[in-house]
Design a protein around this nucleic acid. Structure first.
Lengths: 128, 128
DNA sequence: GCTTGACTTGGTGTTAACTCCAGGTGTTAT
DNA sequence: ATAACACCTGGAGTTAACACCAAGTCAAGC
């Protein structure tokens, strides 16, 4: 799979894909004879995984660490688990914050609806 | 209320509080005779509101727009409502992303637990 | 009246995460 | 074989959201 296709498939710019690879956020992708990247199925899975993690706000630095640990093999499983547990904890905190904010937005929107209704009633009265 | 107290109360640096005010993210705070900021109850409510919105990832730019609209009075209620509806939509999207990521993290962590258990069993066998 | 400490402003510096660009190489179509 | 195109690399530029700093002012304690 050429980079253009991967770019389209995951809605990430080619620059971003190259950037991710350069900083070690995904393992390095093999090149074909002419030097272009040729993504394997495995590579695509990495890209998709990273995209998912990033979309939830996991920092790049942490993900780079994970990729590094992964590449070091089974001896790092325990550390990787701890890393994920920590990230899950932080994710849950962020989700809680968002839940509170969501309720607040809902309340605000409802209030505004009320005040619009009031305005309309006033208008109707003035039309009489 | 002096800035130090507000800073402590909301766990925001004084620099951040001044920054927020400077860019119009909170309405400007009155000064006492010696020129220092003196936060009213109202000011604190703004700070708390902004902190809540920021913690859920609403961009500063959007919040500045909201504060501007708010200060223009009731004629902007409809616009403010739309603004919040849009932000709520985006917030829900982010929350969905996070939920998926959370499930994935949970799965990874569980898998790692399994592989640790396996390792331990192997160890036990080799002890026999 | 002098130091100490909290505050002020205006401006510069920093970090994360991309994003863009120039200059070069290889492939493909006419 | 020449133009058009996709891709490469190394490096510089951008944006959001702060964080830091210098130089100055003000009030309080000794």
């Amino acid at each position: 799979m050429m980079i253009a296709e991967v770019s389209g498939k995951f809605d990430l710019s080619q620059d971003t894909l190259r950037y991710y690879e350069r900083i070690g956020l995904i393992p390095s992708v093999n090149r074909n004879k002419s030097g272009s990247r040729d993504y394997t199925e495995e590579d695509c899975k990495w890209v998709e995984f990273i995209k998912c993690m990033r979309s939830a706000g996991l920092p790049i630095e942490v993900l780079i660490e994970y990729v590094g640990l992964f590449q070091q093999g089974d001896t790092t499983i325990e550390v990787r688990k701890e890393l994920f547990i920590e990230q899950r904890k932080q994710l849950l905190t962020r989700m809680e914050d968002m839940k509170k904010t969501l309720e607040r937005l809902n309340y605000k929107i409802e209030s505004y609806e009320q005040s619009v209704v009031k305005k309309e009633k006033e208008l109707k009265r003035s039309e009489d």
